[in-house]
Design a protein around this nucleic acid. Structure first.
Length: 426
RNA sequence: GGAGAGGUGGCCGAGCGGCUGAAGGCAGCUGCCUGCUAAGCAGUUGUGCGGGCAACCGCACCCCGGGUUCGAAUCCCGGCCUCUCCGCCA
């Protein structure tokens, strides 16, 4: 969340950020609640001070045998105690309102982020050549059906519409890609994590899925648990409530999980095949950074995600998202988009975000500086490295042949026992 | 799922309902001392909120949330977590 003192000192700047991020403006409500909260606390502290003082005199009065004085002090303290209780109740309500509103304020976009909607996004660079074909390239749904490696109907049969099901070499390729990606990241110092696929409400609030995205997550009511929409949630919350010694930073983690998203309201766009499904695998990269060095860490994190696409020799571009297109919690986001020849368009396979101290304030993740100065919030970052379904789409569509087969990228062959091609299964 | 034990500061560990933000030890920091290392002596070392330019002052925090009481780390209730035993199970 945003530092309350920043809101007090510069409300207009926060309001502008809300507008640019297309988020409702709750700043005036926060300022009002904040003022009331502070007044109530000052009043309560003063009453508690007096109450403590009188209480302390009770024992003395008793031991010196002055019963009457003791009883009158008790009565006085009792009256104060009731006054305090009433005040506490009001303070609790005001504070609940205050913090609920505070959780709805988005992070501030970094200065270099273009203001506007998706049309203001900037293509930072491109890599690789789009493949040429001397035939009409097919899309991944046709390829999947022909090769017997993807069956959306079966996914719908056992779970529902929007659940994919990979078969045979499709499932194998998915597994191989996960291994390849984790190996790449391990090489770069990312510690592998296999976290729970469910997370509690506190964790979801810490990384800011709650409150904004609560309705988009699958929920287990009995335990108040949520199926994770990204491994960012369990991994970032690994250090929730901790104070990390400065020397331990930065910390890098990589984890593979399934991810679950209702995708409510997104019907009509990208609904075909693997482009937008309710459950998908992803390798996620998470960094805990020294607060003074997160911008360098952001660039190197982007480069880390790019490694995967380069290893697989897939043409991609890097897009700097505008204020209106970026996520609630982020200060700056690069998207990685793969070219998919059958879809004939770019597909987002990774978001690489710097959250600065936005998540660490919520999850209370701090750093103890070596020079003994005050604790500071660390910075958190994450990137997909990368999402599986659209990666499969791009590989199948870009590596398809006129014979109807799919060549396996060279880097992936060692992970598939040297297999070079996926052919139709009978 | 059933039965029991327990959750105190960076760590270990004490704590008759009041003078305990919390003994003692360890670790850390600062001085002093010692020809190196070690030892020794003295002091010091939590976090958050509110107020003040500031030294500082007030309040809160002994897993979390309620309750009893003039007063709770200490008593009562609920929850969470850890450990042991039994049952069940990939």
């Amino acid at each position: 969340m945003i530092d309350i003192s920043l809101i007090r000192e510069n409300p207009d700047r926060i309001k502008a950020a809300c507008a640019n991020k297309r988020e409702p403006d709750v700043i005036d409500g926060i300022l009002a609640a904040d003022a009331e909260r502070r007044a109530l606390q000052a009043e309560g502290d003063e009453l508690r001070h007096r109450q403590k003082d009188i209480s302390a005199q009770v024992a003395g009065a008793f031991s010196s045998g002055n019963r009457e004085l003791a009883e009158s002090l008790k009565a006085e303290a009792k009256a104060l105690s009731e006054e305090i209780k009433a005040l506490d109740e009001r303070q609790r309500l005001v504070e609940a309102e205050w913090s609920a509103l505070l959780l709805k304020v988005p992070n501030l976009p970094a200065p270099e982020v273009p203001v506007g909607d998706a049309s203001a996004n900037i293509v930072v660079r491109s890599w690789g050549e789009r493949p040429g074909f001397d035939f009409e390239p097919r899309n991944h749904i046709e390829i999947g059906r022909t090769l017997g490696i993807l069956d959306m109907e079966l996914g719908a049969k056992v779970a529902g519409s929007g659940f994919s099901l990979l078969l045979g070499d499709g499932a194998r390729m998915s597994r191989a890609l996960i291994a390849l990606m984790l190996d790449i990241h391990r090489e770069a110092g990312f510690r592998e994590i296999a976290p729970p696929h469910l997370a509690n409400r506190a964790a979801m609030t810490g990384t800011a899925q709650i409150p904004k995205l609560e309705a988009d997550m699958y929920h287990v009511p009995d335990e108040d648990l949520f199926l994770i929409p990204t491994a960012e949630v369990p991994i970032t919350n690994l250090h929730a409530g901790e104070v990390i010694p400065e020397a331990k930073l930065p910390i890098y983690y990589a984890g593979h999980t399934a991810n679950f998203r209702k995708e409510a309201g997104s019907y009509g766009a990208d609904t075909r095949g693997l482009l937008r499904v309710h459950q998908f695998d992803k390798v996620e990269l998470v960094k805990f950074s020294h607060p003074d060095r997160s911008w360098e860490e952001h660039e190197s994190l982007l480069a880390e995600a790019e490694k995967v696409l380069r290893a697989l020799e897939l043409p991609y571009r890097v897009v700097l998202l505008s204020t209106g297109d970026m996520s609630f919690a982020s200060a700056k986001v690069y998207d990685l988009e793969l070219w998919a020849s059958g879809e004939n368009r770019w597909l987002e396979v990774s978001s690489c975000s710097n959250f600065l101290d936005f998540q660490s304030r919520r999850a209370n993740i701090r750093m103890r500086p070596e020079d003994g100065s005050a604790l500071r919030f660390v910075h958190t970052l994450n990137a997909s490295g990368v999402a599986l379904p659209r990666l499969l789409v791009a590989i199948w569509e870009n590596y398809q042949t006129s014979r109807g087969t799919v060549r396996i990228p060279a880097a992936l062959r060692p992970y598939m026992h040297g297999q070079e091609e996926i052919s139709p299964t009978v």
